[in-house]
Design a protein around this nucleic acid. Sequence first.
DNA 1: ATCATATGCGAACAGTGTTCGCAAAGTCAA
DNA 2: TTGACTTTGCGAACACTGTTCGCATATGAT
Lengths: 228, 228
Amino acid sequence: MTSRRERIRTATYREIKEAALSQIGEAGASSLSLRGVARAIGMSPAGLYRYYDGRDDLLTDLIADAYNDLADAVETAIGSTGGSPRDRFSAGMWAYRRWALADPNRFLLIFGTPIPGYTAPEGGPTVEANRRMGRAFFLVGVEAWSAGQMPVGLPDRPPTEGEAALAAEIDPDLPPALIPVMLGSWAHFHGLVTLEVLGQLQWLYGDGCDRFFEGETGRLLDDLGLTG
Amino acid sequence: MTSRRERIRTATYREIKEAALSQIGEAGASSLSLRGVARAIGMSPAGLYRYYDGRDDLLTDLIADAYNDLADAVETAIGSTGGSPRDRFSAGMWAYRRWALADPNRFLLIFGTPIPGYTAPEGGPTVEANRRMGRAFFLVGVEAWSAGQMPVGLPDRPPTEGEAALAAEIDPDLPPALIPVMLGSWAHFHGLVTLEVLGQLQWLYGDGCDRFFEGETGRLLDDLGLTG
DNA sequence: ATCATATGCGAACAGTGTTCGCAAAGTCAA
DNA sequence: TTGACTTTGCGAACACTGTTCGCATATGAT
């Protein structure tokens, strides 16, 4: 049963978040001002404290949203493509990049310099969404591996406890050495996206990094042994 | 001729920078406070304006220093190792990571969320140091390539103008396709380092990412075709 | 000694996050 | 409808920030 008050309250929450998100999109997370959003929605600064415990609390909410949003984008991109593991992996990477470039400041909200004073709550939504994203990529890898499509030369160093545990959790037959390989692949294109978002590739590519990204992801997939 | 005033002035500059750096190291760049450093060195806030035009100007100086410092670390690591191209490349990557982990907040000062309002001055020291670092890595690649030690399968897509120009500038005989490959390799381990610095790998590796990094860099070098 | 410059400081202004107590509005039972 | 209780909002205040201004002092050159 949603009372009148509840409806208004959730609407106010949304209004606050929209104003905050707009402010972040324009000038970055660090210049998010409580008084600014209060001004934007016609409320007194003190009034906002009925909704959030403070600036950090609002940021926490926005960060969690961003994580989930990105995870959604990647998950649907991977899931909707009915093609080969290579195609699905590729679709996930492109979705990741597209999401980041659509709102760079929002991407940096989760993968940029952490907000001082903010620490992800243990087992909170940020951790959860992070896992979701990782799992999506891992699953594509597992799928390719069990289909015998990923004859990548796995490193022969002994796996760490964490790697072994995670591999066992996903699939008892999964070689733990696949874990670091998949994680490293994520780190690879995450690095590409991060550098592009920060404009660190502009000196060479200007604003057209598409071909570079395509080439690199192709190389990445080749190195994984994923074909057609 | 360094007058008494000049000596004091440069000493004050150093003192300011040290205090600022210490503050950044503890709580991150975004919580650098001019009044804080003024307090730390026993000066009035207004007095600082005789040395820097403001907070952003101070940050610019610190950013330039950080870029140069990192470039130095990488350059000497690559240069001092007299081994194979693979060893030198590897040494550069480890130096990069070591530098980042030694002072994560300083690393994020240059590769994290950009300070709002701050834009790297055109052709300024940040750009310069960035080039230096890139050049160091490129040179190792060129060296390996001309020694025939890098039989990586180069992508056959046509190079962009920037790639062709840069390749020609480095060595007229260099295949432009090597440029994106080298840049991509940098992005790869930069991504690894970034994620580690941000604690984004902790859920799997805790604080011991050494083995993971070693494995990934090894895989990276293998993919480049660099052996022994 | 004189004069110009370089340096430092106190006071002030506009902005920030945050807290407090009080008033208005909504909700619900008697 | 009356009354009690809770939720919501606001104005004022506090401590903090970056920044500017004018005034004093110290330094260096003539």
